[in-house]
């Protein structure tokens, strides 16, 4: 009975992996092909690959490609960090924003817009947002202590988030320039519009580095299913695990927020949605949530462009609009199961 069971399980995760990879690839192609300039699929692809399509090549390579790439990278990062955070805290309600990184990254970005630095140099905004994220994670580590419990980490994260949000409000409050305030509000909603390859290159090292850190956590997170004491006695270095979770999450969430603004609900909903498909194993959920997150951001970003193309609907608004009802449905289902 054992062999068929394993075959079945392997088969199921293989099907899930194939399905998710196919979905991400499909959405990536669709994301490349839609936009205000209407060109045939053949022309677009030719322009993208050869660079011989005149203005269409510029559109494909400078506008649509970075947008689709950032969608995959940021979506994957948010899904992965959400799964890692939930696995580490052993709580399905945990979110990568919980450790205060997205709040402090947003504060850095807001300061860049407010001081006008963002208008002078295009790179000022993402760089200051990354700086904010770094400062935020250092403060959280300092507050929670390197050996602190997960509860201390949550409390420190909440405190830093609240403080960053208060400072952001203060900047908005005192802003003498209504245009800057307007820009800040829109930026905070999160978007992938008008990003260039430069944004991709800025974010890529942090997203890949953080992603590798988080991706290495599978076995430790699996062992943590039995509690911190049992995991430690099975040879898991909890101190290192904790640092890896914090630094990996800070890198990917900080970089995501720096180039795309605050995009909520992906890190919360995706692990929740896919948990059942991987037999609830937190280690297996890492890759599944990565692919799922990439698909969710790509799909939302396509929706943004299709539904009201002329109104610049913000990505973060759509992910929250899609994510919140999905989350409510999951809660309802969980309640019915009586867990």
């Amino acid at each position: 009975m054992l062999a068929p069971f394993w075959a079945l399980l392997m088969g199921r995760s293989a099907i899930l992996a194939l399905g998710l990879v196919g979905l991400v690839l499909g959405l990536f192609v669709v994301s490349l092909l839609i936009g205000p300039s209407t060109a045939s699929v053949g022309d677009s692809t030719y322009a993208l690959i050869t660079g011989q399509g005149g203005p269409l090549s510029v559109v494909m390579r400078e506008i649509r490609l970075p947008r689709a790439l950032l969608g995959v990278l940021i979506g994957g990062s948010l899904g992965l960090s959400g799964a890692a955070m939930q696995g580490y805290l052993r709580n399905p309600l945990a979110d990568p924003g919980l450790i205060g990184v997205s709040g402090s990254a947003a504060l850095g970005a807001v300061l860049a817009i407010q001081t006008g630095l963002a208008a002078i140099a295009a790179l000022a905004l993402p760089v200051m947002a990354l700086g904010g994220a770094l400062l935020g994670v250092l403060l959280v580590l300092l507050l929670a202590g390197p050996r602190g419990t997960s509860l201390a980490l949550i409390l420190a994260g909440i405190a830093i988030s609240a403080f960053a949000a208060a400072l952001t409000s203060l900047v908005l409050n005192l802003s003498p320039n209504p245009y800057a305030a307007n820009e800040i509000v829109f930026w905070m909603m999160g978007s992938l519009a008008d990003r260039s390859m430069t944004h991709v290159w800025i974010a890529l090292p942090f997203l890949l580095g953080g992603g590798l850190l988080l991706g290495s956590l599978g076995r430790g997170l699996d062992a943590l299913t039995l509690g911190e004491d049992a995991a430690e006695a099975m040879g898991i270095n909890l101190l290192r695990l904790r640092l890896t979770v914090i630094l990996g999450t800070a890198a990917v969430v900080g970089a995501s927020t720096a180039v795309a603004g605050a995009i909520g609900f992906v890190g919360l909903v995706m692990p929740h949605l896919l948990r059942g498909f991987v037999g609830s194993r937190p280690g297996a959920l890492l890759w599944a949530a990565t692919l799922g997150g990439a698909a969710m951001i790509l799909a939302s970003d396509i929706l943004v462009r299709l539904v009201v193309p002329d109104r610049d609907l913000k990505l973060g608004v759509v992910t929250a609009l899609v994510g919140a009802p999905l989350f409510l449905h999951l809660i309802y289902r969980t309640r019915k199961e009586g867990v």
Binding site: R90, L226, D229
Partner: peptide, 30 residues
């Protein structure tokens, strides 16, 4: 230490609804 000793703590934590076999397989972690 993971190879030298198995530890069963008093708090019986099983955080996720993984199968019984998956839980037992975690014992092979070290």
């Amino acid at each position: 230490r993971g190879k030298a000793v198995a530890w069963m703590p008093q708090s019986r934590e099983i955080a996720w609804s993984v199968t019984v076999e998956t839980v037992i397989r975690l014992g092979r972690t070290p």
